[in-house]
Amino acid sequence: MNQDIFVVAEHLKGSVEDVTYELLGKGRELAGSTGGKLVAVLMGSGAEGLAGSLGAADKVIYVDHPALENFNPEAYAAALADVVKANNPGLVLVPNTSMGMDLAASLSVRNDLPLVAYAIDVAIDGGNVVATSQLYGGKVNAESVLEGDTVVVSVLAGSFPADAGKKDGAPEVEKAAAPAELDNLKVRFKQLIEPEGGDVDITAQEILVSVGRGIQSDENLPMVEELAEALGGAVSASRPIIDNKWLPKTRQVGKSGLKVKPKLYLCLGISGAPEHIEGMKDAELIIAINTDESAPIFEHAHYGSTEDLFDIVPALTEKLKG
């Protein structure tokens, strides 16, 4: 493999996203073992100033074009492909986020490069990149060896500490030309849509009782609300509950929902898919109740029980009301 480590910088509404710092921190460590440079790839319009918050990198390659002002799957993929082709890094780290999912697989096909997704760890071993992916809803990990001079790994947010890559500074900025494709795009950004305000701000709650698929029916929600009330908290939920429209989107914890950090996160019937874990793993106390003893949620919880939630919830509510 080649030596340089590239990190695709993700930014939204004028600030660099934390996942970028997570990748820069890891990238610094990897560049140490390859003896290469750590380079951040920044794409935007008039966004050169963001390079100042990418001080962990040795260099920032910046592509400027009006079509890059906001993330655009086609425009960003085209610009990134050109940058990678011109520089031949050894490894391109892309966040496995909503934006990154459109980029990593595009880069793999456009430049004919190997790709491994859902990585929670990346290492260099015997001159090759080795990536550990979290698969099957977090139940199985796979360690893959990537072969090639340049390879691509997309990394799940929250896999590495952000602090190691969060450094202001004035890295060298190299400007790269935007590809001609950007003047004639088939995908056009229209607008950002802010989340609707909700009845309850779950990010401000100290106690959350969170429900997942195991709740089975919306008819079982009042029982959970009663418990949340007895605890002095609110009810949040995992994705399937929101998709079923049993609770509003504002109650969703996870990757495309909200990140919460309550004092108590009591999860009922939540299996603990990686997308959910991303939103709640920093809670101070996590208690999980799930009848599936192999549910990944138990890897992240402090305490767990495989007893039926429909027995525990009323028992606990009664004791709280005592």
Binding site: L115, N141, A142, V145, Y303
Partner: peptide, 23 residues
């Protein structure tokens, strides 16, 4: 361009302390 060299279930151990008993 990539091959799985090892597949494994994430290590339990630092996981939850399981509470025994009935509801």
């Amino acid at each position: 361009g990539s091959e799985v060299r090892r597949m494994f279930t994430p290590e339990a151990g630092e996981g939850a302390e399981m509470i025994e008993g009935d509801a």
